Amino acid sequence: MNTVSTVRKVGIVGWGAIGRTVGTALADGRVEGAELVCVVDNRPLGDAAPAPQVPLEEALELCDLIVEAAGQGVVREWGERVLASGTDLLVASSGAMTDEELAKRLLATGPGRVYFTGGAVGGLDLLQAARSLGPLDDVRLTTTKLPSTLEQPWMDEELLTRMRTATGPVEVMTGTAREIPAKFPRSTNVAASVALAVGDLDTVRVRVVADPAAHHTRHVIEASGAHGAYRFEVAHLPDPGNPATSQVVPYAVLRGLAALAGRTGQIL
């Protein structure tokens, strides 16, 4: 790895809805202590990115921090290689961490360090604090999105028809935070984030709802244990370029970057 600098040298993997917003903010100097050095993407970007497009191997030579903004597959394929090179990794697609074997390998690999963002949901810090008092024995997440953003190749025709012709909310699937992110790899990172905060994939019960009137993506978290009860609800506008992602997600990544760059005066 690359020499440590007072300025974090950042490479972004993925120049989609998340990567473009994060990369543009970095290039404009809006994150004190961090600069965009390069972009990694499997599509030719030409002049679309404000930094050179390079292969991953070159990015690991140039950067001390890689931001994953391209989906769970990138975390699985490249995560250990990034960390083994001594480069830190900031993961936006936290759903990858529901693969417990992968999570163990990433946490054990170094000298690079792996970090995660909360993405489209709040209250995770409070859930982590509450968990220190004792287990949260009932944790429920209900995620409601537009039907088109939830369609998956594994769905049968009956379910697809119900979703496409719905005039009101339709329950698409229920399961644990271990099961749901694998079924909806681009739409349910929130389930993984909640499970990481709670510390147990199987405790978190997830309900995925398709609603043609869902102009906002909505997440409702309800948690309780012997020491208290908690309820959080968020409603975000979807990203216009990628409705499966909430518009706020890249800004959560930018907040994480600012914290890693050592900007002072933040709530942690």
Score class of each variant (00 low, 15 high):
58 E>H: 11
51 A>L: 09
55 P>M: 01
115 Y>N: 04
7 V>S: 13
90 L>H: 10
61 E>R: 14
94 S>W: 01
26 L>S: 01
70 A>P: 01
96 A>T: 00
95 G>T: 01
38 C>T: 07
39 V>Q: 05
99 D>F: 00
30 R>Y: 07
41 D>V: 09
18 I>T: 13
83 L>Q: 06
23 G>T: 04
48 A>K: 15
83 L>F: 11
27 A>C: 10
59 A>M: 07
120 A>K: 06
119 G>K: 02
115 Y>H: 12
114 V>I: 15
80 E>S: 15
75 V>E: 02
63 C>N: 08
8 R>W: 07
57 E>N: 06
22 V>M: 02
118 G>H: 12
8 R>S: 13
54 V>N: 03
68 E>F: 03
117 T>A: 02
77 E>R: 15
25 A>T: 06
108 A>M: 04
19 G>S: 12
60 L>C: 09
111 P>Q: 05
33 G>A: 06
57 E>G: 12
89 L>I: 08
66 I>V: 15
111 P>I: 07
38 C>M: 11
23 G>N: 10
123 G>W: 05
37 V>D: 12
118 G>N: 12
65 L>M: 11
49 A>E: 07
94 S>C: 04
26 L>N: 01
109 T>K: 04
46 G>W: 13
71 G>A: 06
15 W>R: 06
87 T>S: 09
88 D>W: 08
22 V>Q: 04
51 A>F: 07
103 A>P: 00
41 D>M: 11
50 P>C: 10
67 V>Y: 12
70 A>H: 08
92 A>D: 15
14 G>E: 07
78 W>V: 08
61 E>Q: 15
123 G>D: 11
10 V>L: 09
71 G>V: 11
107 L>D: 04
111 P>E: 07
